[in-house]
Simulated scan of single mutants.
Amino acid sequence: MLQLVTIPCLKDNYAFLIHDDVSGATAVIDVPEADPILKELDARGWALSHVLLTHHHSDHVDGLAGLALGPDVAVIGAAADAHRLPPLTRTVMPGERFSLGSADAEVIDVSGHTVGHIAFWFPEDGFLFTGDSLMAMGCGRLFEGSPAQMWDSLSRLMDLPGDAVVCSGHEYTESNARFARSLDEPPALTERLDRIARARSAGLPTVPSILSEEIATNPMLRARDPAMKAALGMEGAPDAEVFTKIRALKDNF
């Protein structure tokens, strides 16, 4: 089994550590800055064996140099993004699997926020590292990809088990929740909004989240929900078209 640690970084970023008790392998997923990660590693007596990068944006990779990695640490990122990521020791393709100690990881294409963005899925432990693709109560802005591309990516993630633990890259949940409430407010959303408000008032993270709850309450995933389509006056519209509308509304919210 993998242990999971959520590490707040910068103003509103997250990095994640996973540790395999069997082998001692330890990975960090995305590196916004080095110091909080190094402090957590030191406190737990763990040594990095892997770095997994979801995409090239500076707030996900700029801390890498500060980790002062040894030559045996594997730095893994998308082959399609290798030209703009820090130097990698291994490139991976969507659908590829690799091992982290006794755990297996699968690479998923989640292009949209950027082209070449990947997610890392650990099926045995149920951990899904989504970077800036699927986020708690939202999804990343479309800086490079199209709405159709992002909807395809989100649809792939929605096909994963509902109890998947979604480890996304930012603490944007509260603002995403305000947008969700502006569209409609089913009971499941009301209850989640209350929990989000309590967590943030206590200074607690709202990340990770659970995929089934994202499907029920995240407006970006509810593009296929008849209730959401009705709220937007888009009954019968294709899911991708509804998502395009929701993403555009969020961009201007």
Rank of each mutant, 00 (worst) to 15 (best):
192 R>A: 12
183 L>I: 09
205 P>H: 00
210 I>G: 09
227 A>C: 09
225 D>K: 06
181 R>G: 14
187 P>A: 13
182 S>K: 13
217 T>Y: 05
200 R>G: 04
184 D>G: 08
217 T>A: 12
191 E>H: 13
198 R>N: 15
236 G>W: 01
190 T>I: 15
225 D>R: 02
201 S>I: 09
183 L>S: 06
227 A>H: 07
209 S>M: 09
180 A>V: 01
206 T>L: 06
224 R>S: 15
235 E>V: 12
205 P>K: 06
200 R>H: 14
230 A>C: 08
210 I>K: 08
219 P>N: 09
193 L>C: 15
184 D>H: 11
234 M>Q: 10
208 P>T: 11
195 R>D: 15
190 T>H: 14
209 S>P: 05
205 P>F: 00
234 M>A: 08
201 S>Q: 14
221 L>V: 03
214 E>I: 03
230 A>Q: 11
201 S>A: 15
198 R>G: 09
223 A>L: 06
216 A>V: 02
220 M>W: 08
230 A>P: 04
183 L>F: 05
217 T>C: 12
190 T>K: 14
199 A>H: 13
192 R>H: 13
207 V>G: 01
212 S>E: 05
230 A>M: 08
189 L>M: 04
223 A>V: 05
219 P>Y: 00
217 T>G: 02
191 E>V: 15
226 P>A: 05
233 G>S: 11
224 R>D: 10
232 L>M: 10
230 A>E: 11
187 P>W: 08
224 R>V: 06
191 E>R: 15
192 R>P: 12
217 T>F: 05
213 E>M: 13
210 I>S: 07
215 I>D: 05
202 A>V: 01
223 A>I: 06
206 T>A: 00
183 L>C: 09
189 L>C: 09
210 I>R: 12
229 K>E: 07
218 N>C: 07
234 M>G: 03
214 E>H: 05
205 P>Q: 07
217 T>N: 09
224 R>I: 11
219 P>A: 09
192 R>T: 10
236 G>E: 03
